[in-house]
């Protein structure tokens, strides 16, 4: 029997993988992909609760999140391309000009 807890544990695991990916990966595209992982982990939680509570609200929010995630992916990729053209690098460690 797959219970709500199974969904939540899976979702938390995916979210944690996403967070670690954002924090430690040295490639911006992978960082972006990790953010998608986090978003979708949250989506999974929404869906699970929606099903568990018998309410449609969670599913509605998921659609919004997917729309925002799509827009975010477009803008994020555009910025990454533009950064790559300037710096010939996608390592976030090389992008430290904005300080002090």
């Amino acid at each position: 029997m797959v219970t709500l807890n199974h969904y939540l544990i899976l979702s938390a695991t995916i979210f944690a993988i996403g967070v670690i990916g954002v924090l430690v990966r040295r490639n911006l595209i992978v960082v972006l992909m990790s953010i998608e992982l986090m978003l979708n982990a949250v989506n999974l939680t929404f869906i699970a609760f929606s099903r568990f509570l018998g309410s449609m609200q969670g599913q509605v929010v998921v659609f919004f999140v997917m729309a925002v995630a799509a827009a975010e992916a477009v803008i994020g990729l555009a910025i990454i391309i533009s950064v790559f053209r300037h710096r010939r690098s996608l390592d976030p460690q090389d992008m430290q000009l904005l300080k002090w």
Partner: peptide, 17 residues
């Protein structure tokens, strides 16, 4: 204290987390 501001987004995110 300015050393905290490294300019590296990932450090900020770690702090945020």
């Amino acid at each position: 204290w300015r050393e905290v501001q490294t300019g590296n987004v990932q450090h900020y995110l770690a702090g945020f987390l």
